[in-house]
Design a protein around this nucleic acid. Structure first.
Lengths: 196, 196
DNA sequence: CTTCGTAGTGAACGAACGTTCATTTATCAC
DNA sequence: GTGATAAATGAACGTTCGTTCACTACGAAG
């Protein structure tokens, strides 16, 4: 192991802990309602330690956002490695998206909960990160064969809205259907409809 | 006109202005990021004037929420007076819901933007109000004839999620489809699917 | 052993927060 | 007019906010 890495192991550990706790707090309470002191208390350090690793609350949010889009993006990409047809791929992406949102870790939830407009200064960074992730769904939907008159953009916005809204009502493992079943219902409804 | 009403005309006017401005601020910036001073400044009064009409920020939010669910509920009820078939009624409700969300007034937007969990103390009041409104969609979906295996609860959550998410991307009168077209696409997709 | 760089501390800064209150202003009843 | 009632003011309260900084602790380099 390189000596420089050994030296900075503790630093990295604390930095990762701050990111994880911040993600959890921002996802649960929102950006404005979460204070730097809340995060420091949960991590088990003082407020000054936060500012050793991040220059401001804004930038901490951006760092959390970056990790969030990377994690949920990786999860979706992994789910897309199973080679299935285009509708199956969309369903697999929806399932991975739902599973990431319902995980205990807050990284993915932050992306849904915190709106870019919540921050003001770094809103553009957040929008760019979010769009970079959602681009995957644009590609997936472009690959579908649709009936004439169907709007692909509206279809993507509809599916993402439905998936993200699940954060409001979805409780992991509490009776109701799991992520795979929900993804199957949602994509199935969009594909063939639910009318008798 | 009764004398008591005449006496209190100005009071009511200020109270209504506070409610409207608070709705706008809460909908645009969220609950935590909006301060009493922000609202007072936009109304054109001092902070003390807010507390003449509302005992706390929590209760002001509840009052805004109540007016919000009443307005969007009335809009949906009005749209349902046109007697059409059950799918047409669902589409009419979706259209009215979208139109209310895209209006300049913030009353309807608050219901989507502010989560009951944002407040802590009066969260139960907010949940009750929101559910009272969304009950309409439960009834509408119960009236549909669905294919076997379709989950009505998931269908409602899917549609409401897609509709509410429109607040993120819908810009009134800026090129993209209007509320009626979006409602037609959304409900049409759920009914018959979009696959070729 | 000494030196150096940095993670982390703890106290403090000014500003903004929700809320209160004595006081002033305006309106209606008599 | 006079008194009563309530809207509205403006200043203040204690607290919490994001941020800063002089300082300590400690592992790596020479």
């Amino acid at each position: 192991m390189p000596k420089a890495a050994l030296r900075h192991r503790k630093e990295d550990h604390t930095r990762q802990r701050i990111l994880a706790v911040a993600a959890h707090c921002f996802a649960d309470g929102g950006y404005a309602a979460t204070s730097i002191r809340d995060i420091a208390r949960d991590v088990g350090v003082t407020v000054g330690a936060i500012y050793v690793h991040f220059p401001s609350k804004d930038r901490l949010l951006v760092a959390v956002y970056e990790m969030g889009v990377r994690r949920i993006g990786d999860a979706v990409d992994a789910a897309l490695r199973e080679p299935v047809d285009s509708w199956g791929r969309l369903e697999a992406a929806a399932r991975a998206h739902l599973e990431a949102l319902s995980s205990n870790c807050g990284f993915a939830r932050v992306i849904v909960r915190v709106t870019p407009s919540d921050v003001g200064d770094v809103a553009a960074d957040l929008s760019r990160l979010r769009e970079g992730y959602e681009e995957r769904f644009r590609t997936l939907i472009d690959a579908l064969r649709l009936a004439p008159g169907a709007d692909r953009t509206l279809l993507r916005l509809m599916l993402l809205g439905a998936l993200n809204h699940s954060q409001t009502w979805f409780k992991r493992g509490t009776g109701r259907a799991d992520a795979a079943a929900i993804a199957r219902q949602f994509v199935g409804a969009l594909r063939q409809g639910v009318a008798a």
